[in-house]
Amino acid sequence: MKCCLDMSLKRLSTIRFYGLLIALLSFSGLTACATVEPWEKGILAKPEMGWTLDPVESALESHIFFSKEGSSGGNISGGSGGGCGCN
């Protein structure tokens, strides 16, 4: 079975992303006073608002993608161990 999908993801230059990253950094600086107070973080503390809800499953999932795809990385929230993934 073949999957027919057309991902209209445009190829964006890396430079543009660095730009965005810098923009985000400076954005954080600008909003230094517009803070969410510690007692207002009830929702943000919910497990489903975390970067990974299930780090153990995610670690294996990342390892599978690492083994089966041509690119990897970007998983800031955790490492996914070692291994070849050659086959």
Partner: peptide, 17 residues
Amino acid sequence: GVTQVLSQTAIIQAGLE
């Protein structure tokens, strides 16, 4: 990586590796 709380219900993260 930089993580920024945007509001009581939103959070954003950017990473470079």
